[in-house]
């Protein structure tokens, strides 16, 4: 019996398959001219509100869809549909705390992703798990609200290291919290010297112009090449 035992060497990252699937998905999106955006944050940082503000600015120029990922319920999908009028679907992760590339592609097929210019993926509210799994998105965004504190980039390094854009939300409420804006920028810069940082308020509309310009440039650049 014992003689039949042998060892097979793998030496392979547990994330290798997901990374390969994510790269393949990005390549496909490039060919189809679809700009997929992965939006990550803590619960309640303002993902849905920020998407609503942004989509209302983008929808006259681009065909936009939204995929809402949550463990349960469809409140976000209904809220986006009601407040923007764009196509929106709810993905249930079945208890999982993040989306991977396979789940993202399944969602894109369900929404007929290739008929859109921009698809926003609102990831599960969580600063830990979504960072480990590449969804295949063309742009990774983290939203950090002033109520969460300026120390979050120190506590959750990976998600800030991996993102392209940090949106600091609820900037109108900054005076109510012990949130040091410059300190926050410094903490983000320590993790990620290249990320773009834009401060916004969905209530007052501050920064939404800058955010819209940023996205317009990124979408056009993706579609050009």
């Amino acid at each position: 019996m014992g003689n039949n035992v042998r060892t097979i060497l793998l030496e392979k990252s547990a994330f290798a398959d997901n990374d390969a699937e994510a790269d393949a998905l990005r390549e496909k999106l490039k060919k189809e001219g679809v700009f997929l955006v992965n939006v990550m944050s803590s619960p309640g940082a303002g993902k849905t509100s920020t998407l609503t503000s942004l989509i209302n600015r983008l929808k006259s120029s681009y065909k936009v869809a939204v995929m809402e990922a949550d463990i349960d319920s469809d409140v976000d999908a209904r809220s986006i549909a009601k407040n923007t009028g764009v196509e929106s679907i709810q993905l249930h992760t079945g208890g999982m705390c993040h989306l991977d590339a396979y789940m993202t592609e399944t969602g894109l097929d369900a929404v007929d992703g290739k008929s859109f210019d921009v698809v926003f993926l609102e990831n599960v509210g969580n600063l830990v798990c979504p960072a480990e799994f590449d969804t295949g998105a063309c742009l990774d965004v983290v939203i950090l609200s002033t109520s969460e504190g300026d120390d979050k980039p120190l506590k959750y390094p990976l998600i800030f290291e991996k993102c392209d854009l940090v949106v600091i939300s609820k900037i109108d409420a900054v005076k109510f919290f012990t949130f040091d804006f410059d300190k926050c920028v410094e903490n983000i810069r320590m993790r990620n010297p290249n990320a773009t940082i834009i401060a916004i308020s969905n209530r007052t509309g501050e920064g939404i112009d800058a955010l819209t310009t940023y996205f317009t440039n990124m979408i056009n650049k993706w579609k050009e090449n």
Binding site: I8, K12, A14, D17, G95, C97, N126, V128, E132, F133
Partner: peptide
């Protein structure tokens, strides 16, 4: 918190390699 997700990726990979190598268990 995302351990279950990582486990399922690991198991998928190991089972694939095991099947390719005609492994019994």
């Amino acid at each position: 918190m995302h351990e279950l997700g990582v486990v399922s990726h690991v198991i998928k990979e190991v089972e694939t390699v095991a099947k390719e190598n005609n492994v019994q268990k």
